[in-house]
Every structure is written in C-alpha cells, then in structure tokens.
Nucleic acid binder design. Sequence first.
DNA 1: CTTGACCGTTCTCCATTCGTTCTCTATCCT
DNA 2: AGGATAGAGAACGAATGGAGAACGGTCAAG
Lengths: 198, 198
Amino acid sequence: MPTRAQHKTLNFIRHFIARHDCAPTLSEIAAGLGLRSKGSLHKHVQALAEAGYLKIRSGQQRGIELTRFAEQQLHSLPLLGRIAAGQPIEAIPGEDTLNLTEFLLGPDRFALRVTGDSMIDAGILDGDTVIVERRDTADDGAIVVALVDNGEATLKRLRKRGDRIELIPANTAYPPLIYPANRVQIQGVLVGQLRTYP
Amino acid sequence: MPTRAQHKTLNFIRHFIARHDCAPTLSEIAAGLGLRSKGSLHKHVQALAEAGYLKIRSGQQRGIELTRFAEQQLHSLPLLGRIAAGQPIEAIPGEDTLNLTEFLLGPDRFALRVTGDSMIDAGILDGDTVIVERRDTADDGAIVVALVDNGEATLKRLRKRGDRIELIPANTAYPPLIYPANRVQIQGVLVGQLRTYP
DNA sequence: CTTGACCGTTCTCCATTCGTTCTCTATCCT
DNA sequence: AGGATAGAGAACGAATGGAGAACGGTCAAG
C-alpha cells in the first residue's frame, strides 16, 4: 500500500509513459510534481519497485518500467456491453476489455485528420481522425486514400470499372470522380476511425 | 524501452517510412533530427534493432525495416496531416504524433458497443464503439448515456427544458423522448468514438 | 566494366545528463 | 516527544549522446 507521495509519483509516471512512450527521469518527475530536488524521489521510486508496481533497470537512465499489470491497465478500457435505443445495456459475453493498442495500431499505419464533409454519409465527419494502412491496392468498395495525377490526395470510396476508377464521395451533394486507372494511385486503405467530443 | 534519443530516432523513421514508403539513410535521419554527425545515430539504430523495434539488412543502403513489435509497443501513430476532398495532404504544424492512450483513455471511462441506427446523423453507426466518461450531470446538447426509470439505457443527445428532459435521437425517423427530469438518470457523457473497417 | 558519389560501419574524444548516495531540515501523526 | 514521512541540496561516477574522421561496401551512370 503506497504512501501519498508514492501514489502521486506512480500516477505521474503512468501518465508520463502514456504521453511519451518512454519513462521519465527523476528530475522530470520532480519537476512534474513541483519538487526542487530528487533526493527523496529516489526513495519513493525504490519503494514502489519493492512493492511490485515498478521495475527498475538499475543504473540506466530512464530505467523505470511499469509492471505488466499496471501496463495492461494503462491501455485498456472496460467494455461494459452493448447499448441501443430503448434497450438496457447488455453485457457482451467473453469480451470485457477493450485494448486500444490491439484495436487500432498495426504496422504501416498512419493517421490523418479529415476536413470537409464529403464522406458524411459514411459517418466520417469534419474533424475526425482516420487511420490508414499503407497499401497500393484495395478491394472494390473499400474507402481509400487516393492520389490523382500525383497531386491531390482524397478520401473516397473506391469502385473499379474495368480500366476506369471511380472515387465516390459519401455525400449526395458531391459528384463521383471518374478517372482512367493510370491516373489514380492508391496510397492506403481506411482501417479505423476515431473522434473525440469536447 | 528506448532512451530518449532512440525514441526520437524511431519516431522519425516511422514518419519517414509513412511518407516516402522507403527507409531513410542515416544522413537523412541525422538531418531530420538536427544532428551534424551520424556516428552516434548508428549506435541508436543498432540498439533499436537489438531491442526488436527494427530489422536491419546489414550493409544494404536504406536497409531499415520496422517490425510489428514497434507499432504495438509504441502507443502512437504518425499523424501525417489533413486530408480533404481535392486537396493534397497538408502537414499539421506542431502536431505530428497521435497518441491513442492520451487521446482516448482517462479515469472513469468505459466503452460500449452501439447497436441500432438512432444516432446515425451524428456519425455514430451500428457497430461503432463509444467511449463514455462516467458522470451524473451533463451540459445541454451533449450526447449522453441515460437511464430512464432505472430500466432502459440509451445513447441520445440531451436537451434540458426546465423540469423536463428531452432525449433526442440523431435520426429523423425516430421521435424525441420527453420525460420529467426525475425519471431520467445520466450515467455518462460521450467523450470518444471509434470504428474499425474490415 | 569502371568510376565516383553515396552510404553503412567503426573508432576516438568530449560534454552533458542522470541515477545514486549522503547529510541536514521540515512536517505530520499518534 | 519521537518516529515516520518528505524535501532540499550537493557531490560523484556511470550512462548517454554528439562531433568528427576514416574506411570499405553498394549502386547506378557512363
């Protein structure tokens, strides 16, 4: 059971790692907690390691690691169940944790901010963030990031029509774009999407 | 767990590959990080390879590959820029990394799967996952998880009208639900949303 | 095939950062 | 009062990271 100072220290370390992907130095912890010295911090970190919250690679800089338990907690949310209009929350059997890392990350992926409303009927709004997997081919019907004439990148639904490629907005206010296949280069395929609310 | 220089190096390599689809040379990394020498860079890249983040095709030029492990171990994606209909990808100054952990996680948050199409006009589709922050009050206009008569939980936009509360679907096919305030209990406020594509 | 620019690799030297330890002091809680 | 808890400050040695130079391999153009 950690003391109050230890608790604050542990919390800061967890947030720091979540933000920076690497552990803080003692001085950074001290600065973050408003301390002017790192003398006592060393004792707290040591105590946390003995209590099993942390592992320390002794002597190395930034040598603080979270234990597996603390780490698992850091990247997951409880997945409570399904929610629908007019129905109570219904538990999802066998699935009670949502690990964001597994859910959205993967090799050759990157993120893009969406501007404009051309994909609004597909539930992609202005300001959303989409996650794209870099690929140079895509199945018919997929939503892709496509480059036209090596100049303009757009997010559209792909339709292959023989030697023509149609880039179809999900908004009836915009017309489909139709090009010969050799003018369109696929940069990636939409694999995920996320949004935050203020 | 990489050191700070290693972490910056790895991040630069990820961005470079995401943009150019080929690995950078050591000199390019050095230039990108503001270094005048590549002597130490080689050590960092080597250390990253030993730690399993990279693979190196030894001797070959541009012989750096990212591993799957790197993407899963780091909790962020390169954020390349904005994308819009008919515009090239435009870099976002000062913001080049999307940290999922920081973006969506927080204390007192949980996830729910959405079924039904009652929020479709707000870009919330059947099968989406929403992230909810547990709270018992909410601002007017927020999207909330509300419990009516302690029985039915629904995801709706909240409108306060004096001692009445309106729960408004974002779908013109459904009517607003209007209750006296004492029959409606707010369970949480929508703070995030995510979706995966097959 | 030859050539030259480019690039990975290795080495040494040096400044800085950081973990560690120590002593001394202040605060809080039975 | 007395012990537990916490912080300030200083000092030391190890780890880290960068500069610069030199060597040899790779690759594409001539």
